[in-house]
Amino acid sequence: MKEQLIKAMQHNQLVDMMYVSKSGEVTKRRIKIIKMVGDSFQSFCFVKHAKRTFIIDNVLAVLPVLHKEREVV
Rank of each mutant, 00 (worst) to 15 (best):
K32Q: 08
A61R: 04
K28G: 10
I55T: 03
M18K: 07
I33Y: 05
V62A: 08
L63Q: 03
I6A: 10
M18A: 14
G24A: 14
K48V: 00
E25S: 14
M17Q: 01
A61W: 02
V37F: 04
H67M: 10
Y19F: 11
E69V: 05
H49T: 01
G24W: 03
M18H: 15
Y19S: 11
A61C: 07
F46T: 00
K48G: 00
Q13V: 07
Q10F: 10
R30L: 13
H11R: 09
V72A: 06
F44L: 11
R70S: 10
E71N: 14
P64Y: 07
V73A: 11
H67S: 14
L5S: 05
K7E: 03
H11P: 05
I56H: 02
K35S: 11
R30T: 02
C45N: 08
M1R: 01
T53G: 07
V47T: 02
A61P: 03
N58M: 02
M36T: 00
M18V: 12
V20A: 09
V59S: 09
K51Q: 12
D39R: 06
V62W: 01
R52Y: 09
L63A: 09
E25F: 05
K22P: 12
M36I: 15
L66M: 15
K2Y: 05
F54I: 02
K7F: 00
H49Q: 01
K51Y: 07
L14S: 06
R30I: 00
C45Q: 07
K32C: 09
K7R: 13
H49V: 00
K7P: 03
S23C: 08
K7H: 04
S43G: 14
S21A: 13
A8W: 02
S40A: 14
V72D: 07
K35R: 15
M18Q: 13
R70P: 09
S23P: 11
L63P: 01
M17Y: 01
S23L: 07
K2C: 01
D57P: 02
I34S: 12
G38N: 05
M18W: 15
L66C: 09
V73D: 08
S43D: 03
R52V: 01
Q13K: 12
S43T: 01
R52H: 04
L66D: 11
I55R: 14
S23T: 14
L5K: 05
Y19H: 10
